[in-house]
Write a protein that binds this DNA or RNA. Structure first.
Lengths: 225, 225
DNA sequence: AATTACCAAATCATCAGATGACTTGATCAT
DNA sequence: ATGATCAAGTCATCTGATGATTTGGTAATT
């Protein structure tokens, strides 16, 4: 049976306002009616209006300025892509993360400095190889290295999205596979740093793709395709 | 001068609770203290607690069940990365979109079919070249083509994120540059389709990067770097 | 003993009213 | 003109109360 989601007043109100925003009732930078007016127009209390507005603020649609009013900040939908990503297949999530990883490696090569290379080598040494115990600690150190590679791109968007997908993939694997994927060894990791150090974007990207290829094959096998 | 962000009580409270969640004070599925208790613990009113919780719900961290309580749903932030992307530089946004575009082209080549190629050629013909009038219509047709290229990857995550970044970049350009970037001509567009048709991921990616190179140069020039 | 119907406590959802803090534009004196 | 002052408008927060829903226990029934 389909359990129909009786949305709360707050959700309805947020959706109503969101629809007006993307429908260009108010253009970017324009001011919305004040809370009392919205409350009257939507026939809900001011507290409920505030919760709805707060949601839209957290999603990047609106901005509130105390003493001034509430303004439209953007009409681009940011909820769709991510709620979609949550429900996407593990394969799609992996491919998306690989896209970020590959581009980050290119940029990292382009913008590499000796300092960064040294730091990457330090993190890699600290990571070590899995010694059969303290799994959580090893995973953390491994992730720290990969995140540092992406951070070397000096692109905050890539970094944030990479972290998001890494977390998402971790949750999805836990929920669907219930076990881990194989992890490339130290040499494969070092190859990425070496490629970045050359300063050649093509080589850096190629190194990342070589790195990920066996993981992807492993994934395909586990998913039975 | 650095304008220090005096965070509101709601933001502080949301951040405090968020920190506890990612710090695993409560595990996934576990129940949080009720609103009255949170209100007391944080020394803020219940209404403020509700707004903070509402934000975390909209970000995918929490779930509220009326009559039951508030529960941890996930420790992965679902909107942080993209709201962060909103405030990022145009350059970073472009690089992120390029990452998606390049990976999508690779996958499109890998999964290409005659039907898809035909459709892409049709959309490209329909797009035509800019005739000096009906700017909005041309932009729409151009976007339809690019979106179709990404859609050919058959990866819903890439498609949704690509659409998000395209919209975001459009807004950012309008807000910062106030004008348009040059648009590659028909031949450059056709080269992408041809490359995808060969079925070679390397060629497809290369075609996209060749396509974007002049746009990126144009962007660097306009940003004065 | 198992099942069902009912009830009461717990909790979130919503409302209403009030006060404080901040912004903004107008006013006024210089 | 310029700067200080002030008042209105608006969001931020608090307090108190009521409604709606879930949940677990209790008792009646089978």
């Amino acid at each position: 049976m389909q359990s129909l989601a009786k949305t709360s007043l707050v959700d309805s109100a947020a959706e109503a306002i969101r629809a007006e925003i993307v429908g260009h009732r108010w253009s970017v930078g324009e001011k919305l009616p004040n809370e009392a007016q919205l409350s009257a127009q939507l026939s809900i209390s001011r507290g409920t209006v505030r919760e709805a507005v707060r949601v839209l603020v957290s999603q990047g649609y609106l901005e509130t300025r105390q003493g001034s009013g509430t303004y439209v900040l953007s009409v681009v939908d940011a909820t769709g892509p991510l709620t979609m990503a949550r429900r996407a297949t593990l394969r799609d999530q992996f491919e998306a993360r690989l896209a970020l990883d590959a581009e980050a490696a290119r940029l990292a090569a382009h913008r590499q400095t000796p300092t960064v290379i040294t730091e990457l080598r330090r993190l890699l040494a600290e990571r070590g190889n899995y010694d059969g115990q303290d799994k959580a600690g090893f995973v953390d150190r491994d992730f720290a290295f990969h995140r540092a590679v992406v951070a070397a791109s000096q692109n905050s968007v890539l970094v944030n999205m990479y972290e998001f997908f890494s977390g998402l993939i971790g949750e999805t694997i836990e929920a669907t596979l219930g076990k881990d994927l194989q992890e490339p060894d130290m040499a494969a990791h070092a190859a990425i740093v070496d490629a970045i150090e050359t300063g050649d974007p093509e080589m850096a990207e190629a190194a990342v793709r070589r790195f990920m290829a066996p993981v992807l094959r492993d994934l395909e096998r586990l998913l039975g395709s």
